[in-house]
Computed example of a mutant assay.
Amino acid sequence: MIAGLKVVRAGLFDTLQDLGRTGFMALGMPTAGAMDRIGLGLANALAGNPANTAGLEIGVMGPDLLVEADSVHIALVGPLSPALIEGPDAAAKPLESDRSHLLKRGQILRVGMIEGSSTAYLAVAGGFDLPAFMGSLSTYSRAGIGGFDGRKLAAGDLLPLAQAAAAAGDERKLAQPFDYGSGPLRVVWGPQEDYFSDEGRRTFVECEYRVSKEADRMGIRFEGPTIAHAKSVDHGGADIISDGIAPGAIQVPGAGLPIVLLADRQTVGGYPKIATVASVDLPRLGRLLPGQTVRFAAITVEEAEALRRDQEARLQRAIAGFVAARPPGGIDLARLYEENLIDGVVFDQPWSATSKPSSAEGGTK
């Protein structure tokens, strides 16, 4: 019998993603990969995995997953309200996000809705036992490659686990939510900012733009004031000879509204790019929802590099600062009884000199 997680009910858009299929853009192969590398990295770290292990990227609403393995450690990261269902007729019990959990055979994990973001992540200890394509498990659904049959998950799918049972170990959680930053999205001008008028460039950095309904893993179309192209013999408006597309490239077609290109972007494009979102802010783009508004602010390449280094340092500090997580309901009595306690009191709530433990809160041995 294959150990796995079976999709009882599919979410809206759940795909397997790692950090991307790098090195093949010259062959016309998009990188795909996680929209939010920070969220995936934290989930993998909580599950004890290397950073590039493929996890489940959850879009807007997650699936219900039946555990068909002896046990499995999972980690959820993002603004979720997950729940655990012990059996077909059992009530759902709330679980915490931003931490790891031990699940056992027959339990159902209800991942639930994402609140205030478009993306969250689920990682499993050891990863999924699926074949890589061009060195990656990332799903590129437009071409039907990678991940689970090159598509989003559907009811009845069985995601095979690399580990048939969970290894011993404590559960962990984030000490506090990771700070993605706020304020304008930082961008570096170019590579074709000279294809836009001075007025067009001012409009881009001085005005507010709204995420349209045309937003997905390929890119985000924004609504707002139009950005004027330059009118000269050398720069013929909104068309260029097609060239490479970097993550976060901001194309401006003839209609004058910006399109920010993301994980599933094409490898080349023929519209001029006014700027490129600094890599430090790409995870923020991956979390935006239709209707949310943003502003853009131009910074230098040197500033962008310094910001990314600082973000990576903060990410490593967050991982180093994981704390022990209690099981749902408070004290892990099974673990407590395994300890060789001579005398002592365990409190499930903060204790003061004027409070006394109840029989449910503590005792001696």
Rank of each mutant, 00 (worst) to 15 (best):
114 I>R: 00
132 A>T: 14
39 G>I: 11
41 G>N: 05
104 K>Q: 07
49 N>I: 05
119 T>S: 11
101 H>G: 11
38 I>C: 07
114 I>V: 13
73 H>I: 15
121 Y>T: 08
59 G>M: 12
91 A>E: 10
124 V>G: 13
34 A>Q: 05
78 G>S: 00
25 M>N: 00
52 N>Q: 03
89 D>Q: 11
84 L>E: 09
69 A>F: 04
26 A>S: 14
38 I>W: 11
77 V>C: 14
133 F>T: 15
102 L>A: 08
25 M>R: 01
34 A>K: 01
23 G>F: 07
80 L>Q: 04
30 P>H: 03
116 G>H: 12
56 L>D: 13
105 R>I: 09
86 E>C: 01
102 L>F: 04
101 H>Y: 12
84 L>C: 13
22 T>D: 02
139 T>I: 08
29 M>N: 05
133 F>V: 15
109 L>W: 03
28 G>D: 09
88 P>H: 00
52 N>F: 03
97 S>A: 15
58 I>H: 07
70 D>W: 04
141 S>G: 04
134 M>R: 11
137 L>C: 07
62 G>V: 03
78 G>V: 01
50 P>K: 01
62 G>L: 05
128 F>I: 15
49 N>E: 02
34 A>N: 02
49 N>K: 00
132 A>R: 15
51 A>I: 15
43 A>I: 14
59 G>P: 10
135 G>S: 06
36 D>V: 07
22 T>H: 15
130 L>R: 07
123 A>L: 09
36 D>P: 05
119 T>H: 08
42 L>C: 03
59 G>W: 08
45 A>D: 14
24 F>P: 06
87 G>W: 09
107 Q>I: 02
130 L>A: 10
72 V>A: 15
103 L>V: 06
72 V>E: 10
94 P>N: 01
100 S>W: 09
28 G>T: 05
81 S>T: 11
116 G>M: 13
123 A>D: 04
25 M>P: 00
49 N>T: 04
69 A>G: 02
23 G>D: 09
107 Q>N: 00
54 A>S: 12
126 G>K: 07
22 T>P: 01
83 A>Y: 08
115 E>K: 14
64 D>C: 13
42 L>A: 06
86 E>G: 03
26 A>M: 13
138 S>H: 01
54 A>N: 13
137 L>R: 02
115 E>R: 15
131 P>N: 06
70 D>S: 04
101 H>P: 13
46 L>G: 02
88 P>L: 02
87 G>K: 03
137 L>G: 08
138 S>Y: 02
126 G>H: 12
79 P>K: 04
46 L>E: 04
68 E>L: 09
132 A>E: 15
74 I>N: 00
73 H>Y: 08
110 R>F: 06
34 A>T: 09
102 L>V: 07
85 I>S: 03
35 M>L: 15
39 G>S: 14
72 V>K: 10
84 L>M: 12
108 I>M: 02
109 L>Y: 01
136 S>N: 06
30 P>L: 08
90 A>M: 03
52 N>T: 02
55 G>S: 10
120 A>Y: 14
68 E>A: 05
134 M>Y: 14
135 G>R: 08
57 E>L: 12
57 E>M: 05
91 A>N: 11
30 P>S: 03
42 L>N: 01
81 S>Y: 05
139 T>S: 10
